[in-house]
Each structure stands twice: as C-alpha cells, then as structure tokens.
C-alpha cells in the first residue's frame, strides 16, 4: 500500500527502486513474523515418549500328540519338533512332564485317565536338541531346553527338539485299547 501510492507519481526509472523497497519491506515483515513465530515455537515443545512392550510370540510348537513305537531293547526317536519363537527380550523354553520320574504310564483313552496301579515303562522319556544327544531325562521339574537367548529380531528363532524312548524286556505290552502315555508341558517366556 505505502510504496504503491508514491510510485505512481514518479518516473519509470524510480519504479524499480520503489519495487525494491516494497520487496525489502515485505522481507522485513516476514522476518519479523518469523521471529515471533520462532519465539512461540521455542516455548511450546512436544515430548514424545514411547514404551516398547516386551513380547514373545510362539509361531510353532512341537506336535500335540506323538506316537512312538519300538520293540524291546530298542530306542524310538521322534523329531525334529520345532519351536519357532520371536521375542524382543531375552527368552527361553522349559519342559517338564506329568510324571515325577519321566516314565510313561498305562493310560485308558476311553476313561481319559491313567490306570490306577497300571504298568509303567522301565525307562524315562528323554529329550535332546539334536538327534544324537546328549539325552536328558524328563522330570516333573521344569528344565531349560534353551535359556538366555537374546532377542530374535524379525526373523523367528528355531529350536529343534527330539524325544527318545528306550524299552527293555522288563516292559510289559498292554492289552488293546490301552497305551503308555506321558504329558510334556513346554513353557515359553521372557527372562528376568
């Protein structure tokens, strides 16, 4: 407004000077406004905090039911069964059985219960993370299959798991409709 009124009364040569003055004024105004805005921004900050939850994801577990067959003085090995885990903190897997000594007991599927005073295999079920052992006896106490594993990243970590049952002539075959059975409980979780 101000430069335009004056410019109309002057020669063309002075128009450029007036135009330059207008641009300079505009720039000064912008600078002043920018300074005010800058001062306002400095007094208004937003702090963003983020808490990443510690999580564990189990993509695959060993089979829910594993049929094992062997003759006396033989060993039956099943596997590999695979755990696939993703975790963003140290993690581990533990295993235990429902039998104190890890031995399979006579089971009645029709009654869905172990047979009271039923037969028990002479040797415990054993586990390993390789097909060649070393083999560890399963017990009713949780024991680590893997422990203290670091965060996996986006790619899941795979843990192989094998089971072995050795039988002897001390073991008694069961009548039709009965079987030897044991329950393994796998627990996946983060460390402390």
């Amino acid at each position: 407004m101000l430069p335009a009124t004056g410019c109309r009364l002057r020669a063309a040569a002075s128009r450029a000077l007036c135009l330059s003055g207008a641009i300079l004024g505009l720039l000064c105004g912008l600078l002043v406004m920018n300074g005010v805005a800058g001062a306002q921004a400095a007094s208004h900050t937003t702090t963003v905090s983020f808490t990443l939850l510690e999580a564990i994801e189990v993509l695959a577990w060993p089979s829910a039911g594993v049929p094992m067959v062997a003759g006396p003085d033989e060993e039956a090995i099943s596997g590999p069964f695979i755990f696939l885990v993703r975790a963003n903190a140290p993690w581990g897997i533990r295993v235990r059985t429902d039998a104190d000594d890890g031995r399979m007991r006579e089971y009645d599927p029709n009654a869905a219960a172990y047979v009271p005073q039923g037969h028990v295999l002479s040797r415990s079920v054993e586990w390993s993370t390789t097909p060649n052992g070393p083999w560890y006896t399963t017990t009713a106490a949780d024991v680590p299959v893997v422990s203290g594993r670091g965060p996996t990243g986006a790619q899941p970590a795979a843990v192989e798991f094998y089971l072995r049952q050795v039988t002897t002539y001390d073991d008694v075959t069961l009548p039709t409709g009965r079987e030897y059975r044991i329950i393994l409980t796998y627990t996946a979780g983060l460390g402390y």
Binding site: V58, S63, A64, G65, P67, M68, S78, L184, Y186, L190
Partner: peptide, 18 residues
C-alpha cells in the same frame, strides 16, 4: 486337538511380573 499319541504336549506362555 486330538487326544492321541503316547507323548502328549501342552504349550504355555509365562508372563513374569516384578
């Protein structure tokens, strides 16, 4: 899940608290 197989398996996840 079928109730079969001599070795049955149950999976569980533990949530630890402090």
């Amino acid at each position: 899940t079928q109730d079969a197989g001599s070795v049955r398996a149950v999976g569980r996840v533990a949530v630890v608290t402090l």
